[in-house]
Simulated scan of single mutants.
Amino acid sequence: MSRPRIGFVGLGQMGRPMATRLAEAGYPLTVFDAAPFAPIGSATSATALEGVAGVDVLILMLPNSAVVTGVLDELAPRLSPGTLVVDMSSSEPLQTRALAARLSERGLRFVDAPVSGGVRGAIAGSLAVMAGGDPGDLDELRPLLGVLGKKILEVGPVGSGHAAKALNNLVSAATMSVTVEALQLGAAFGIAPETMNAVLNSSSGRSNTSENKVTQFMLDGSFASGFALQLMAKDIRIAVDLARSLDRPAEISDRVAEQWSRIAAEVTPKTDHTQMYDLIGDPK
């Protein structure tokens, strides 16, 4: 059975290693940067508007829903009916559902499949993929997604993947905020951050932040996890906006969103999210 022809749009820090893994796995692949639409290191040389017409699967790895929508406004008319569009970006769930409905009118299928695991996970193919869509479409995608991630989580209908990703990052950000504050309070009392983090990792305060970010990216001052602070703030805002749309309470989430939004406005797009260790306050 021949492998599906893939178009891949978006070659940022995450998109490039993901596209590379698909190419190395033997998938016929044409890759394009988002703007302008130009092939970069692709197996097939073509302009986007020409090259996209023959793909079976179109994968998008872009900054937000607005960019995804803009790209598909240009590319969707050139896709063949039955083409499976896969948005692996961190997009807004309600906009995702509306976009999927519009594409369906053109005979196009849609799955949202955002990822967690950072640049290292993208390079290693160890991402967690949160997929929302028709079960048949998800079954069709599973071998392809298996090249990119170790855990393929089918979380519900279209839009559910993006909702799950935003909620996951909300929890991650909240955990980072309180962990950093605990480290700073400990330091103010005379407990070295390294010691306080060891306490967290040996006790009930253990988290992904304490295990995988404090020593690796914060205490050494590298701040090089590969995920931007402003992107984390965007995902948090998506989560609290979802709470608003569902008329659900989000008291703690609102405070987390306020903190991250405020700090995100003070940094550059290249600032890593682990730099919250310094930006919340100096623990020394």
Rank of each mutant, 00 (worst) to 15 (best):
S2C: 01
R3C: 03
R5F: 10
I6M: 10
G7L: 09
G7W: 04
V9Y: 06
G10I: 13
L11Y: 07
L11S: 12
Q13S: 08
G15P: 06
A19S: 15
L22A: 08
A23R: 13
G26P: 10
P28D: 01
T30H: 04
F32Y: 14
A35P: 00
A35T: 11
A38F: 00
A38P: 05
G41W: 09
T47H: 11
A48H: 04
E50A: 15
E50T: 15
G51W: 03
A53K: 06
I59W: 02
P63V: 02
P63L: 07
S65I: 08
V67Y: 09
A76T: 09
P77Q: 00
L79H: 01
S80N: 03
G82F: 12
L84R: 00
L84H: 02
D87A: 13
S89G: 14
S89P: 07
S90K: 03
S91E: 05
E92T: 04
L94N: 05
Q95T: 09
T96R: 06
T96D: 09
A98M: 10
A98K: 13
A100T: 10
S104A: 15
S104C: 12
E105D: 14
E105Q: 15
R106C: 04
R106N: 09
G107P: 07
L108E: 06
L108T: 02
L108F: 12
V115D: 05
S116R: 07
V119Q: 03
R120Y: 10
A122K: 08
A122H: 08
A124E: 14
G125C: 04
A128T: 12
A131F: 04
L141E: 08
R142M: 06
V147F: 00
G149P: 02
E154P: 03
V155G: 00
V155T: 06
V158H: 05
G161Y: 11
H162P: 03
A164C: 14
N168P: 00
V171M: 11
S172Q: 11
A173W: 00
A173P: 01
A174S: 11
T175W: 04
S177D: 08
L185F: 14
G190E: 13
I191M: 15
A192D: 13
A192N: 07
A192T: 07
N197C: 15
A198H: 04
V199T: 13
N201W: 06
S202F: 09
S202L: 11
R206F: 03
R206P: 03
S207W: 04
N212F: 15
V214F: 04
T215A: 13
A224M: 02
S225Y: 10
G226R: 08
G226H: 08
Q230P: 03
M232T: 05
I236M: 02
A243C: 14
R248K: 07
P249C: 07
A250S: 10
S253T: 11
V256M: 00
A257R: 05
W260H: 00
S261H: 04
I263R: 06
I263Y: 05
A264C: 06
A265H: 13
E266D: 15
T268W: 07
T268N: 12
T268H: 12
Q275H: 12
D282H: 01
P283N: 13
